[in-house]
């Protein structure tokens, strides 16, 4: 049977219970091409059921909800089934299964978790803030996984006095730190007034980037391996020096 759910943790836990006796469940929060005669179910979140099963799962493995949160953030289309298989195994074994790397379900979950974690680590480096006129910082990003709120604690610890916004342009939402609190908000397009000296700093940074390179040892493949091209969009140093309007000082803004 195919189970459709809304992608939240509670709905997932409900679906886990509903599909538990099903020998061949398929869980999805997106679209799925149906085959004629295929049975489908739309999972409606049952808070009580979800709470109960969460407690039970936590008694098997106290860190498992962290795993679930991470897997559900993945940008991978198969993530729902990866999580389902992993949690069915956990329910079956009744003990932490994380290190049972002989199991396919664990390997798939492990890889998924690793990818999300790795992207968070990468973005600790790849986020580029723009200085705005109000003094706050603004960073547009378009990561593979839904991680923008997970980036906040890192930057908040570094710059506790500067408010900042990390805007996931792809998912149209933003993690905001206002100098005291952090919250997540839907954000379609941001109107950003750049600080007067922003362009000058970007220019300096690009000059630095160009001069620190050793041209006689060019290894482009290695560079792209470490810093995939899809992440370049919001990096001033990877923007072609002249943009479409021929204005080489134009600041980087989300398109």
């Amino acid at each position: 049977m195919i189970y459709f759910y809304d992608g939240t943790k509670e709905a997932f836990l409900t679906a886990l219970v509903l599909s538990f006796r099903d020998s061949d469940p398929f869980l999805t929060s997106g679209n799925k091409q149906l085959v004629l005669g295929q049975e489908t179910a739309f999972v409606r979140t049952d808070q009580d059921k979800a709470k109960k099963v969460e407690e039970r799962l936590l008694s098997f493995d106290k860190d498992c909800m962290h795993d679930l949160d991470t897997i559900l953030r993945s940008g991978d289309v198969g993530k729902d089934n990866v999580a389902l298989a992993y949690f069915r195994l956990l329910a079956e074994k009744k003990c932490p299964v994380r290190m049972m790397l002989g199991e396919d379900a664990v390997l798939a979950a492990d890889e998924c978790i690793h990818r999300v974690g790795f992207e968070i680590h990468r973005f600790h480096g790849f986020v580029r803030f723009l200085g705005t006129a109000s003094g706050a910082l603004y960073a547009p990003i378009s990561p593979d996984n839904d991680i923008c709120d997970l980036l906040v604690p890192h930057f908040r610890a570094r710059m506790p006095k500067i408010p900042f916004v990390i805007h996931d342009v792809k998912r149209k939402k933003a993690a905001v730190y206002d100098g005291e609190n952090t919250f997540l908000a839907p954000l379609d397009e941001a109107e950003v007034v750049l600080a007067a000296d922003e362009t000058a700093w970007q220019r300096l940074w690009r000059k630095y980037y160009d001069s620190v390179n050793i041209p006689s040892r060019e290894r482009l493949k290695q560079m792209r391996g470490y810093m995939p091209v899809r992440y370049w969009k919001f990096m001033p140093e990877k923007r072609p020096f002249h943009d479409a309007e021929g204005d080489e000082d134009a600041p980087v803004l989300p398109s």
Binding site: Y209, N213, I214
Partner: peptide, 15 residues
């Protein structure tokens, strides 16, 4: 753990 912020065309990181 250290953090790389960018990579130059010679394949080295800028940290």
């Amino acid at each position: 753990s250290g953090c790389c912020h960018s990579f130059t065309p010679d394949g080295r990181c800028i940290s």
